[in-house]
């Protein structure tokens, strides 16, 4: 056994907050993106991953979906959907990438951008989150993988998505703890999982699978 602390499983519950910021055209989106709160950028690029599979669009994030479904700017929607969220470790970097993508598209647009009806506007929201301990604690690596199998989607989402990008921990809480526990091999294997192309149920199953047979 090492002297490293146990892993405490937390969960995150949130309320949606309306910022009052909205956009009806690409020009307005371009103008509002820099002033929208960072948590709003995170919200609109991540909320789909917590939802039921059938609710997911092929656009992966709210910006791409709105640009496609409302503004019908399919090429930009594809570019926004293609932004690799795993490539960023801070929301600032992610925001810059979105802004650059919109800027580049607008600079090459040879016509006036379409303005949608007021009822189809994009509304910037953000989440107001509460992090609470679930009561589940893992004392060792084997125990950790056993307990991961039973945690809620919200808990998995928090330790994987929120911790890495929104809390600026640069990696998932699981990988950090496993590294501290002397299992960088397992940490690396978890880092190699792309959470953005899996449902949370699939992600949980893949993590549990990695731990099969693992012991300290």
């Amino acid at each position: 056994m090492t002297n490293q602390p146990s892993f405490v499983f937390d969960t995150e519950l949130h309320l949606v907050v309306l910022t009052g910021i909205k956009a009806r055209s690409l020009a307005e989106l371009q103008a509002e993106l820099p002033r929208a709160p960072g948590s709003s950028i995170f919200f609109h690029t991540h909320q789909e991953y917590l939802s039921h599979e059938f609710q997911r669009s092929r656009h992966y994030n709210d910006f791409a979906r709105w640009v496609s479904e409302t503004l019908r700017e399919e090429a930009l929607a594809e570019k926004l959907a293609a932004i690799d969220l795993l490539a960023f470790t801070t929301i600032r970097q992610l925001r810059d990438a979105i802004i650059q993508t919109v800027d580049a598209y607008l600079s090459e647009l040879d016509r006036a951008p379409y303005e949608c009806r007021p009822e189809d506007a994009f509304h910037f929201c953000r989440s107001r989150s509460f992090v609470l301990p679930t009561g589940l604690v893992a004392d060792d690596v084997e125990d950790f993988f056993r307990k991961v199998a039973s945690i809620s989607n919200a808990s998995l989402y928090f330790h994987f998505f929120e911790a890495r990008l929104r809390l600026g921990r640069r990696t998932s809480d699981f990988s950090r703890w496993l590294t501290d526990r002397g299992r960088p091999d397992l940490a690396k294997a978890i880092d190699a999982l792309n959470p953005y192309i899996r449902t949370l149920d699939e992600l949980r199953r893949d993590i549990v699978q990695l731990g099969t047979g693992a012991s300290e």
């Binding site: 960072g38 953000r126 107001r128 509460f130 009561g135």
Partner: peptide, 20 residues
Amino acid sequence: LLLMLAMEHDDTDLSVLTGS
């Protein structure tokens, strides 16, 4: 319930409620 908790805290993006 979350709103009741939100009313107790500043309007920050994230509140960590530690302990039992």
